[in-house]
Amino acid sequence: MTEPVRLQPGDAAPEFSLLTDSGEKLTLSSLRGRKVVLYAYPAAMTPGCTKQACDFRDNIASLRSAGYEVIGISPDSPTRLAKFRERDQLTFPLVSDEDRGVLTSYGAYGEKQLYGKTVTGVIRSTFVIDEQGRIERAMYNVKATGHVAKLRRELGLD
């Protein structure tokens, strides 16, 4: 099994320019000066991804008050992301990486174990990016349930 690239604290966060759920371009460089939580998830409107997105939604006020912007990234189309955002009243941008290039550059796309089988897909991951665009934390193979609470603890928000 080929291991994808794994980002480490201190690495420069790979730049991206992707379409959001509202059809606008979002670039990482436009967020310089702010802390960013970029989380990668496999597919909009699936049970685990919905649970995770709603966890971020329910914690967005405390994350923002601590200076963090939250962005979700998946290979879904902007149209599907718009439906997801509307259906679950998500209050942060979702970006579309249909060719999986950005996910790959973050080490969040590649071979993984799913129900005992090796498959290629999105590796559920979360990246905390500092104000200078460097990786502060890179968490791979995170759980959909309970991850936001764990992240809040690690960031000292609880």
Rank of each mutant, 00 (worst) to 15 (best):
V5S: 03
V5D: 01
R6Y: 00
R6L: 05
L7N: 02
L7R: 03
Q8N: 15
Q8V: 13
P9S: 12
P9M: 04
G10M: 00
D11A: 09
D11Y: 08
A13P: 10
A13V: 03
A13R: 04
A13S: 06
P14V: 02
E15P: 02
E15V: 06
F16G: 05
F16S: 08
S17N: 11
S17K: 12
S17E: 13
S17L: 09
S17C: 09
L18K: 08
L18A: 05
L18M: 05
L19Y: 05
L19I: 07
L19Q: 12
T20D: 12
D21T: 11
S22W: 14
S22N: 15
G23L: 02
G23D: 12
E24P: 04
E24A: 15
K25P: 07
K25T: 15
L26T: 06
L26W: 04
L26A: 05
T27P: 09
L28K: 02
S29L: 03
S29C: 00
S30L: 04
L31S: 11
L31W: 07
L31K: 07
R32K: 13
R32H: 06
G33T: 08
G33D: 13
G33E: 14
G33P: 09
R34A: 11
R34M: 10
R34F: 00
R34Y: 03
R34C: 01
R34L: 06
R34S: 12
K35S: 15
V36N: 08
V36A: 07
V36W: 01
V37T: 07
V37D: 06
L38M: 03
L38H: 05
L38V: 00
Y39C: 05
Y41S: 04
P42V: 14
P42W: 15
A44Q: 13
M45H: 00
T46Y: 04
T46Q: 12
P47V: 10
P47G: 08
P47C: 09
P47N: 13
P47F: 08
G48T: 13
G48S: 14
C49N: 07
T50Y: 11
T50I: 11
T50H: 10
K51G: 02
Q52E: 13
Q52A: 03
A53P: 00
C54Y: 08
C54Q: 11
F56L: 09
D58I: 00
D58F: 01
N59D: 13
I60E: 02
A61S: 14
A61M: 06
S62R: 15
S62G: 05
S62F: 07
L63H: 03
L63A: 01
R64W: 00
R64C: 01
R64T: 03
A66I: 11
A66Q: 11
A66D: 05
Y68D: 01
Y68C: 04
E69A: 06
V70E: 11
G72R: 09
I73C: 05
I73H: 03
P75M: 06
D76P: 01
S77H: 01
S77E: 08
S77Q: 04
P78C: 00
P78Q: 02
P78M: 04
T79D: 13
T79V: 09
R80I: 09
R80P: 00
L81Y: 06
L81R: 04
A82P: 00
K83M: 14
K83F: 10
K83Y: 10
F84E: 13
F84L: 05
R85H: 14
R85Y: 11
R87K: 15
R87V: 14
D88Y: 11
D88A: 05
Q89A: 13
Q89N: 14
Q89D: 14
L90V: 07
T91G: 12
F92R: 10
